[in-house]
């Protein structure tokens, strides 16, 4: 549970001004969807929340993002602790080339959150939270690559939950999955929204409408509209938003 307060956020990659003066507040313990057409800066935006943009050479960020009242771009902020607190699930399932157990145990071991028997408990708890436990409990030592795409993505969610984050970022987590696997992940996102601040990037309008409490609409790096998902879809304030959700462009 943590609020994310974004103030005048700007991100550049070399000369490309990707995010322009974003300012809004993401509510805690809710699911917020970031939607917009390809190239509008959605991914860059969520990667700004755990400072993952800075591993790309040529990126530059100005402005502030406050989590729990602390500016994560302050020079005193411990970026490793920040990334523990802010989990990330990527577009393509990217399990480690290790066993199912080791995938989930990796984070807690790195952060020395637990050891020995406690690790087993964290792994079980995380896999249960990610609705994967029943499917893998008898083969925790199998390679993560032996799982299906949807299972791999739920494993990645479990891996992110294992370090006890407050915020979970998801970058189009279903775009590489089939409809059945997508439905499972969407149900999971709804559940996670009760306990975590979930921020999900999607260019799928129906998905934003189905899973999110709030929606932010980005267009060419600017925030066009942000608000309650139901309101935004039923009574969009901006003409641009209306055109986007009625499918005039996208």
């Amino acid at each position: 549970m943590a609020e994310v307060d974004i103030k005048k956020l700007n991100v550049w990659f070399k000369d490309n001004h990707v995010l322009k003066d974003l300012s809004f507040t993401i509510k805690e313990n809710a699911v917020t969807a970031i939607m917009g057409p390809s190239g509008c800066g959605k991914t860059t935006f969520i990667r700004a929340i755990d400072r993952m943009n800075e591993i790309i050479s040529g990126s530059r960020t100005t402005g502030e993002i406050y989590i729990d009242g602390i500016n994560i771009y302050d020079e005193n902020t411990n970026v490793y602790e920040l990334r523990r607190k802010v989990g990330m699930v990527f577009q393509k399932p990217n399990p480690f080339p290790k066993s199912i157990f080791e995938n989930v145990a990796f984070g807690p071991k790195i952060h020395k959150i637990a050891n020995g028997k406690e690790i087993d408990k964290i792994v079980e708890k995380s896999l249960k939270e990610a609705a994967l436990w029943e499917e893998v409990k008898d083969r925790l030592n199998d390679s993560a690559f032996s799982l299906s795409g949807g299972q791999q993505q739920r494993l990645c969610i479990a891996r992110a939950l294992a370090v006890e984050p407050e915020i979970v970022l998801m970058d189009e987590p279903c775009s590489a999955l089939d409809p059945a696997a997508t439905a499972k992940i969407e149900a999971l996102i709804r559940e996670l929204g009760e306990k975590y601040t979930v921020i999900i990037v999607t260019h799928n309008l129906q998905q934003a409408a189905r899973v999110s409490d709030f929606t932010a609409f980005l267009y060419v790096g600017k925030l066009v509209e942000y608000g309650d998902t139901k309101n935004l879809f039923e009574n969009p304030k901006s003409e641009l938003t209306e055109k986007y959700i009625t499918g005039e462009f996208g």
């Binding site: 490793y80 990334r83 523990r84 990330m88 480690f96 080339p97 984070g107 790195i110 992110a160 370090v163």
Partner: peptide, 9 residues
Amino acid sequence: FKEAALALG
């Protein structure tokens, strides 16, 4: 792989 590890902190 590296990105996922970095994202875990």
